[in-house]
Amino acid sequence: MIVHTKWSALSQSHWYEYAIRFVLGGLATVFTGAIAHSWGPAVGGLFLAFPAIFCASATLIEKHERERKQKIGVNGQRRSKEAVALDAAGTAIGSIGLAAFALVVWHLIPDYGFGAIAVAALAWLVISIAMWRIWRARPKVWRSG
């Protein structure tokens, strides 16, 4: 399947669902900074890869997918679980890109400052997409389960 956009998906969410994710994202950033201040950057850094808003996002995906199926008279229980599982698989693949982001920042930030963060963001995108393409191209015998 080719990567594409589905803009109508934005209208599936209520304004308060966007507000919840904004607040959770803001709180996660404040929380990470507070941990680094209290316990040092070595502990605070761990929380830069904490699945802070993953719980909320997964719950919303499950709710939207179930509602979408119920609208056409189908019990969306199984499909909604599959949608969350696929999102989680994507997150696992994306976490490899996240590790690449962190490695680039760790090694380049002393010399290049903000340039290192920009290069790291690009590395995250390239590695994540490359890993996703490899995962999609895996042989069918690996796909069961």
Binding site: P41, G44, L48, A99, A102, L103, V105, W106
Partner: peptide, 9 residues
Amino acid sequence: EARSMVIGS
């Protein structure tokens, strides 16, 4: 922080 983030990932 970035070094620890590798572990978090």
